[in-house]
Design a protein around this nucleic acid. Sequence first.
DNA 1: GCCGTTTTCGGCCCGACTGTTTTCAGTCG
Length: 577
Amino acid sequence: MENREIEAILNEIAELLELKGTNAFKVRAYQNAARAIGNLQEEVSLLIEEKRLGKVRGVGKSIQSKLEELVETGELTYLDELRDGIPEGLFDIMSVPGMGPKKTKVLWEKLGVDTLEQLEEACKNDEVASLKGFGKKSQDKILDGIANLALTRGRRLRSQVVHHAERLKAAIAALDGVERVEVAGSLRRGRETVKDVDLLVASEDAAPIMELVREDEEVDSIIGSGETKTSVRLKDGLQVDVRVVAPRSFACALAYFTGSKEFNVALRGLALDLGFSLNEYDLRPLDGSPPPEVADEPALHRMLGLDYVPPELRENTGEIDAAKEGKLPRLVEAEDLTGVLHVHTNWSDGTASVEETVRAAAELGYSFVGISDHSQAATYANGLDFERLKRQREEVEAARAAFPQLRIFHGCEVDILSDGRLDLEDECLEWLDFVIASVHSDLTMERSKMTKRLETALQHPRVKVWGHPSGRKLLKREGSQFDWEPLLDVCADRGVAVEVNGHPMRLDADWVHVRRIRSRGIKLCVNPDAHSPGAMNHAARYGIVEARRGWASKDDVINTLPLEAFERDFLGLAATS
DNA sequence: GCCGTTTTCGGCCCGACTGTTTTCAGTCG
Ligand SMILES: Nc1nc2c(ncn2[C@H]2C[C@H](O)[C@@H](COP(=O)(O)OP(=O)(O)OP(=O)(O)O)O2)c(=O)[nH]1
Ligand SMILES: [Mg+2]
Ligand SMILES: [Mg+2]
Ligand SMILES: [Zn+2]
């Protein structure tokens, strides 16, 4: 049983308990446990074997024994009992905006409504409006919510919402009286996917901002709009939340609106322990004395006895304890990158020539770039065999002449075949400057076979980088299943770096595993996986953020080394000049 | 249901907005 599945089951239990009207703290305990499992760097089955599951924060005696049953038998009596008597359709109903467990339960008990279709029917028949606690407006809102469900549900790639955020930010910033506008929420924390855009505004007068947002030309409908907060749905279904506070509250408000929710709860709990109440306005002493000025987020964290916690780390997965003890790493930055590998050209499935491609790297100020098109097995991508690689080398040489200040490595993203062999002959692998080994086929292979396959590939002496290890495509498919630990053993032994693929749809290795990889002292290689010159900056723009979320420092990232060291110590190439 | 270490019981973050309410519950951030 995969951690993902266990996480989903714990979340389902939480929802079922909510519907039953169980104590909210018990519900939260299951939600917390689910999140803890989801952010685990190791397999639950391994933790059970080694009797370490109880050590996970949020997993106590009760949940531990349930997980043991689940992993051992594949079933969970407690879950089956809960499911019994609660129709599945209630989950769909709860996914309608504004419909929580309480209202869902009322409609189910009073009207027997337990599917979306029945709910829609009941609204159209005017049965809902007459119910106690409901009215005409709630009924219409439910109908609207059902009609737009397809558009509003689900998450989006961060790369796909940034333009909305920037456009609105600029529009708001242009208003009189606006002192600051910042993107907050999951977008600021750099999550791979986001549910909505959260914007925080500093101004003494909120009304004009609320009005501007409501009247924006991209707005389809207004979800809610009060004195200081407006939520709208854009024409493409994306939700935008705008919150306004007075400038003096900006630091506390930014901390609040950046989240995560779980980080906020933990930080506010810490504040209470220290004799304060923390909200989005101030840090108020419980003894009634006036709240101190909070200049910025670092000052707030300092007042709570913490080193500054960067937004990317605010997930309540140990960063607060680390910040207390001064043990947070100094995170890698985009400017630390000295160059990138994993770049495609029109020799395989990229759009540009070698020269156009490396120009983009030169323009970013890199001192090296590695060309790595696909290998022959990737026929769908026009992958290269040794012969074509030799011809490509001529174009690489020409580019070297054209860009003498840029070191251009000629490598290949070589397919890992189903049996773990690499897709090019050893002579060719020897001849290349570097080899990235990646899986592009047979991704759903059985777990132990996949582990063996990867192990064989990573053992090959010419492999320098393990490309997009999981093979996931965000919002499209889960990654492959395999055991990380034995593979990380190989990487550690052989000095293979694990890629942090910066393609906005991959971001692979993901931040959870980045943390594991770096904690084992294995190097990361942050790459763009660019298929066009414009995507060359995806290492800096997306890959680095994922690495930061995984607590990576400059030292953890191999392509922050100066050219000479990178070339000699990592790639093992003789110095050229 | 989880957690702590001066507590194994008694806390568990705090506030905005809406709708239906006559004083607040529910949902969401
Ligand atoms: N204190 C506190 N803050 C919250 C709570 N829920 C949300 N927030 C804060 C932290 C969140 O990052 C911020 C924005 O809320 P969102 O629902 O948009 O979540 P977030 O952006 O983190 O993730 P998402 O939108 O799902 O991608 O509001 C809560 O229950 N308590
Ligand atoms: Mg958000
Ligand atoms: Mg939001
Ligand atoms: Zn690839």
